[in-house]
Computed example of a mutant assay.
Amino acid sequence: MKIRVGMGFDVHRFAIGRELWLGGIRIAHPIGLLGHSDADVLIHAICDALLGAANARDIGFHFPDSDKKYEGIDSKILLSKTMQIVRDKNFEVSNIDCTICAEHPKLQGYIPEITGKLAEIIGVSEDDISVKATTTEKLGFIGRNEGIATYAVALLYQTGKE
Protein backbone atom coordinates (compact mmCIF):
# COMPACT_ATOMS: atom_id res chain seq x y z
CA MET A 1 0.00 0.00 0.00
CA LYS A 2 1.30 3.43 -0.93
CA ILE A 3 1.17 6.08 1.81
CA ARG A 4 2.01 9.78 1.44
CA VAL A 5 2.52 12.57 3.96
CA GLY A 6 1.97 16.28 3.34
CA MET A 7 2.59 19.38 5.45
CA GLY A 8 0.60 22.60 5.34
CA PHE A 9 1.11 26.02 6.87
CA ASP A 10 -0.95 29.19 6.71
CA VAL A 11 -1.05 32.55 8.42
CA HIS A 12 -3.52 35.45 8.37
CA ARG A 13 -3.47 38.79 10.14
CA PHE A 14 -6.33 40.03 12.29
CA ALA A 15 -8.69 42.62 10.79
CA ILE A 16 -11.48 44.65 12.33
CA GLY A 17 -14.88 44.12 10.73
CA ARG A 18 -14.27 40.46 9.85
CA GLU A 19 -15.69 37.28 11.38
CA LEU A 20 -13.28 34.71 12.81
CA TRP A 21 -13.59 31.26 11.24
CA LEU A 22 -11.41 28.31 12.28
CA GLY A 23 -11.97 24.77 11.06
CA GLY A 24 -15.33 25.70 9.58
CA ILE A 25 -16.65 27.04 12.90
CA ARG A 26 -17.41 30.69 13.66
CA ILE A 27 -15.45 31.67 16.75
CA ALA A 28 -16.81 34.36 19.08
CA HIS A 29 -14.15 37.07 18.88
CA PRO A 30 -14.35 40.83 18.25
CA ILE A 31 -12.03 40.67 15.22
CA GLY A 32 -11.52 38.18 12.42
CA LEU A 33 -8.81 37.34 9.93
CA LEU A 34 -8.02 39.16 6.71
CA GLY A 35 -8.06 37.17 3.49
CA HIS A 36 -9.51 36.83 0.00
CA SER A 37 -11.83 34.05 1.20
CA ASP A 38 -13.29 33.76 4.71
CA ALA A 39 -9.62 33.47 5.84
CA ASP A 40 -10.10 30.16 7.70
CA VAL A 41 -6.41 29.69 8.39
CA LEU A 42 -6.89 26.16 9.75
CA ILE A 43 -8.75 24.83 6.72
CA HIS A 44 -6.20 26.48 4.41
CA ALA A 45 -3.31 24.68 6.13
CA ILE A 46 -5.22 21.39 5.97
CA CYS A 47 -5.90 21.87 2.25
CA ASP A 48 -2.19 22.45 1.62
CA ALA A 49 -1.26 19.35 3.65
CA LEU A 50 -3.76 17.22 1.70
CA LEU A 51 -2.71 18.61 -1.68
CA GLY A 52 0.97 18.18 -0.82
CA ALA A 53 0.48 14.55 0.19
CA ALA A 54 -1.38 13.89 -3.07
CA ASN A 55 1.35 15.71 -5.03
CA ALA A 56 -1.32 18.06 -6.38
CA ARG A 57 0.38 21.46 -5.98
CA ASP A 58 -1.10 23.87 -3.40
CA ILE A 59 -4.23 25.78 -2.43
CA GLY A 60 -3.15 28.90 -4.33
CA PHE A 61 -2.81 26.90 -7.54
CA HIS A 62 -6.30 25.42 -7.32
CA PHE A 63 -8.10 28.40 -5.75
CA PRO A 64 -6.11 31.55 -6.65
CA ASP A 65 -6.85 34.80 -4.86
CA SER A 66 -6.74 36.49 -8.27
CA ASP A 67 -9.98 34.70 -9.21
CA LYS A 68 -13.10 36.66 -8.20
CA LYS A 69 -15.15 33.45 -7.81
CA TYR A 70 -13.17 32.66 -4.65
CA GLU A 71 -13.63 36.11 -3.10
CA GLY A 72 -15.31 35.66 0.29
CA ILE A 73 -15.80 31.93 -0.32
CA ASP A 74 -16.56 29.64 2.60
CA SER A 75 -13.38 27.62 3.14
CA LYS A 76 -15.46 24.52 3.87
CA ILE A 77 -16.19 24.53 0.13
CA LEU A 78 -12.45 24.70 -0.61
CA LEU A 79 -11.84 21.73 1.70
CA SER A 80 -14.60 19.74 0.01
CA LYS A 81 -13.12 20.52 -3.42
CA THR A 82 -9.66 19.60 -2.13
CA MET A 83 -10.97 16.23 -0.98
CA GLN A 84 -12.34 15.63 -4.48
CA ILE A 85 -8.88 16.35 -5.94
CA VAL A 86 -7.33 13.92 -3.43
CA ARG A 87 -9.90 11.23 -4.20
CA ASP A 88 -9.53 11.74 -7.96
CA LYS A 89 -5.90 10.72 -7.44
CA ASN A 90 -7.11 7.58 -5.61
CA PHE A 91 -6.09 8.64 -2.11
CA GLU A 92 -8.00 8.64 1.17
CA VAL A 93 -7.17 10.27 4.49
CA SER A 94 -5.59 8.14 7.18
CA ASN A 95 -5.25 11.00 9.65
CA ILE A 96 -4.66 14.74 9.97
CA ASP A 97 -2.84 16.49 12.80
CA CYS A 98 -3.13 20.28 13.21
CA THR A 99 -1.80 22.97 15.52
CA ILE A 100 -3.34 26.44 15.77
CA CYS A 101 -0.96 29.11 17.10
CA ALA A 102 -2.81 32.05 18.72
CA GLU A 103 -2.58 34.09 21.90
CA HIS A 104 -6.28 34.96 21.66
CA PRO A 105 -8.97 33.81 21.52
CA LYS A 106 -8.59 30.80 23.77
CA LEU A 107 -9.68 27.83 21.66
CA GLN A 108 -9.84 24.76 23.90
CA GLY A 109 -13.63 24.94 24.21
CA TYR A 110 -14.05 25.01 20.42
CA ILE A 111 -11.82 22.06 19.56
CA PRO A 112 -14.47 19.29 19.79
CA GLU A 113 -16.79 21.24 17.46
CA ILE A 114 -13.95 22.03 15.04
CA THR A 115 -12.87 18.38 15.01
CA GLY A 116 -16.42 17.25 14.30
CA LYS A 117 -16.91 19.74 11.47
CA LEU A 118 -13.60 18.82 9.81
CA ALA A 119 -14.34 15.08 10.08
CA GLU A 120 -17.76 15.66 8.52
CA ILE A 121 -16.37 17.58 5.53
CA ILE A 122 -13.42 15.24 4.97
CA GLY A 123 -15.52 12.10 5.46
CA VAL A 124 -13.50 10.45 8.21
CA SER A 125 -13.97 9.61 11.88
CA GLU A 126 -13.38 12.36 14.45
CA ASP A 127 -10.68 10.03 15.80
CA ASP A 128 -8.74 10.63 12.55
CA ILE A 129 -8.54 14.41 13.12
CA SER A 130 -6.32 15.93 15.80
CA VAL A 131 -6.64 19.67 16.51
CA LYS A 132 -4.43 21.34 19.09
CA ALA A 133 -4.02 24.97 20.14
CA THR A 134 -0.98 26.71 21.56
CA THR A 135 0.39 30.19 22.14
CA THR A 136 3.80 31.62 21.34
CA GLU A 137 4.27 32.84 24.92
CA LYS A 138 3.69 36.43 23.74
CA LEU A 139 6.56 36.24 21.22
CA GLY A 140 6.41 37.47 17.62
CA PHE A 141 3.41 38.62 15.59
CA ILE A 142 1.22 35.94 17.17
CA GLY A 143 2.28 36.97 20.65
CA ARG A 144 1.43 40.59 19.83
CA ASN A 145 -2.08 39.45 18.76
CA GLU A 146 -1.51 40.49 15.15
CA GLY A 147 -2.69 37.20 13.64
CA ILE A 148 -2.97 33.43 13.74
CA ALA A 149 -0.79 30.73 12.18
CA THR A 150 -1.61 27.05 11.71
CA TYR A 151 0.32 23.90 10.86
CA ALA A 152 -1.19 20.70 9.50
CA VAL A 153 0.14 17.28 8.56
CA ALA A 154 -1.92 14.81 6.53
CA LEU A 155 -1.28 11.12 5.97
CA LEU A 156 -2.94 9.64 2.88
CA TYR A 157 -3.14 6.07 1.64
CA GLN A 158 -3.69 4.99 -1.95
CA THR A 159 -6.97 3.21 -2.67
CA GLY A 160 -6.12 1.86 -6.13
CA LYS A 161 -3.91 2.39 -9.14
CA GLU A 162 -3.23 6.02 -10.10
Score class of each variant (00 low, 15 high):
I3W: 09
I3V: 13
I3M: 12
R4F: 09
R4M: 11
V5G: 08
G6S: 09
F9E: 13
F9L: 14
F9Y: 15
F9S: 12
V11W: 14
V11N: 10
F14L: 10
A15M: 14
I16E: 15
G17E: 06
G17R: 12
E19T: 09
L22D: 05
L22M: 06
L22C: 09
G23E: 06
G23W: 06
G23V: 01
G24V: 05
G24D: 10
G24I: 00
I25G: 05
I31S: 09
L33V: 10
D38R: 08
D38P: 01
D40P: 02
D40V: 03
D40K: 04
V41F: 02
I43R: 03
I43P: 09
H44L: 15
A45F: 03
I46Y: 04
D48L: 03
D48H: 05
D48P: 03
L50H: 05
L50V: 01
L50R: 07
L50P: 11
L51W: 07
A54I: 01
N55T: 10
R57L: 13
R57D: 13
D58E: 11
D58A: 01
I59M: 03
G60A: 13
F61I: 01
H62N: 00
P64V: 06
P64S: 05
P64K: 05
D65M: 07
D67W: 02
D67M: 06
K69A: 10
G72S: 11
D74V: 03
S75F: 04
S75N: 12
S75G: 02
K76D: 09
K76I: 04
K76G: 11
I77T: 07
L78E: 08
L78Q: 01
L79D: 02
L79Y: 04
L79N: 02
L79F: 01
M83G: 09
Q84P: 00
I85S: 01
I85P: 00
I85G: 02
V86M: 06
V86E: 09
R87M: 12
K89F: 07
N90F: 14
N90Y: 13
F91W: 10
F91P: 02
E92W: 05
V93S: 11
N95E: 13
I96M: 10
I96E: 02
T99V: 15
T99L: 15
I100W: 07
I100F: 08
A102D: 06
H104I: 09
P105S: 03
P105V: 03
K106C: 04
K106I: 10
L107K: 00
L107T: 07
Q108M: 10
Q108R: 11
G109N: 11
Y110E: 00
P112Y: 04
E113M: 09
I114E: 00
I114W: 05
G116M: 02
G116F: 04
G116H: 07
A119Q: 01
A119W: 06
A119H: 04
I122S: 03
G123Y: 01
G123V: 05
V124L: 06
E126S: 10
D127F: 09
D128I: 01
V131E: 04
K132D: 14
A133Y: 07
T135M: 08
T135G: 13
T135E: 02
E137G: 14
K138L: 12
L139Q: 15
G140I: 08
G143Y: 03
N145S: 15
I148K: 02
A149C: 14
T150D: 07
L155A: 13
L156Q: 08
Y157G: 05
Y157W: 14
T159Q: 10
T159P: 07
T159L: 14
T159R: 13
T159N: 12
K161V: 12
E162T: 12
